[in-house]
Design a protein around this nucleic acid. Structure first.
Lengths: 232, 232
DNA sequence: GAACACATAATTGTATACAATACAAGTTTT
DNA sequence: AAAACTTGTATTGTATACAATTATGTGTTC
């Protein structure tokens, strides 16, 4: 429940910290796909000049969380259905193998950390904060990639997870993320048992499950004002 | 000190075009890993302000072709041995599967394009321009990823290929890239025959071959001045 | 000669000013 | 009225000025 400080920062906001704040807000669905991100507006919100906002936005555009069109400015990315499928197919290619590697290298500290993630996620759900739960569920996947110790692939997975958040905002069908709780739990168990084969299979089916829960129904469009979304 | 204040572009240099020019120079080993990239210097070379150079450098840092350290500036990235192995392991995970997909979607136009790539590469080798040959050989891999039609994964592969170029500059053991010629030819043939299984296997062994040609011997250090390297 | 302190230069970080472009609304023309 | 043009405003693109930080060189001390 410790909402990380991401609002008007007491200390100097750097380009990276702003990018992270924006990324979090997008992850948590406080700003929705397609939202226009005006430089002046953000500059005022974060109390910095457009220069540093610009850098942040470019940063986010590189991981395709925001889309920048020349002379048109930046908006939160709004992945097409094709892109959505691509992202999940890429995850299905990368993550099972990564989970396998992770199983062979997991320490007890890692397990504890993963279990805390699950607890936090559960707590967020109970607190009726589905955005945060989704964010934490993403962290869970990133954490596994980190454990596997392949920084390069972990980086790819991180961007895929981030984009998944956009995709879920746009194309999600089912109601709850409760289904995930069991999947994540089972995965942690497999990792703890150092059962690579099982971890790989669980991850694969988990992703297939997520993927199949997407639907054509588009545009889940309630949008907060930027100020309300960012300065909470 | 021939101060030709114009670079390659006679037309207005944009942030993207400069990033591409730098990327090409790095690909072709005209600037070597570790080279310091001073903003003022580049600004003068390309006839733009530091603002746009900055954007270019940040762009390249996102794909890990250059490394930016706060208050220290940018240099051409210099991947460690661990990173080198990671990059190739990632390629071994992604590219064979991608080649398989590509085989199922290859058109005759694609084949023609790939064959032209090989010819160009060969020509570059004969012209004693190994840098360019290496660049073209990278393009070959990118092209296959593009054919496979998974833009997301193709993007990943593109960054991996780019980083491979740095790695080859640092850790390459064997003399020639001739071994590649046959490998690439065989791959094209498999694609033309729409033999996915074979394409996958050929790609895998090709990458393993490349990977095993790396060595611990570091720092292949002849460095041109930036001006000489960029204003060709 | 090595280690340190300090001044100076080089370089990056950030804010701001201005130019270029896109957007919206109103006006004219047909 | 619809299309084309005009004007005004909002927004982005780029250059520049200045502040903050790091690198460099010089002299002093031991």
């Amino acid at each position: 429940m410790t909402r990380t400080k991401l609002s008007a920062p007491s200390q100097a906001a750097t380009s990276d910290s702003i990018a992270q704040a924006l990324s979090l807000a997008i992850h948590e669905h406080r700003i929705s796909p397609g939202t226009k991100l005006v430089e002046d507006e953000l500059a005022e919100i974060y109390g910095v000049s457009r220069t540093v906002i610009r850098a942040s936005l470019h940063s986010l555009s590189h991981i395709q969380l925001v889309e920048i069109r020349r002379n048109k400015g930046a908006s939160v990315a709004s992945p097409s259905l094709v892109e959505a499928h691509e992202v999940f197919e890429a995850r299905e290619l990368l993550e099972p193998r990564t989970a396998h590697c992770a199983a062979e290298r997991t320490t007890s500290t890692d397990i504890a950390k993963l279990e805390r993630h699950i607890d936090d996620e559960h707590a967020a759900l109970e607190a009726a904060d589905p955005g945060r739960a989704l964010y934490l569920s993403g962290l869970f996947h990133n954490e596994i990639a980190r454990i596997a110790g392949q920084a390069t692939i972990a980086g790819f997975i991180e961007t895929l997870v981030a984009r998944s958040s956009l995709i879920i905002a746009l194309y999600w069908r089912r109601e709850s993320a409760l289904c995930e709780k069991h999947a994540h739990h089972a995965l942690v168990q497999a990792l703890a048992d150092k059962n690579g084969k099982l971890a790989e299979e669980l991850m694969r089916s988990h992703l297939v499950d997520l993927h199949s829960a997407l639907d054509l129904r588009e545009r889940n469009g309630r949008a907060l004002s930027l100020k309300d979304a960012l300065l909470q």
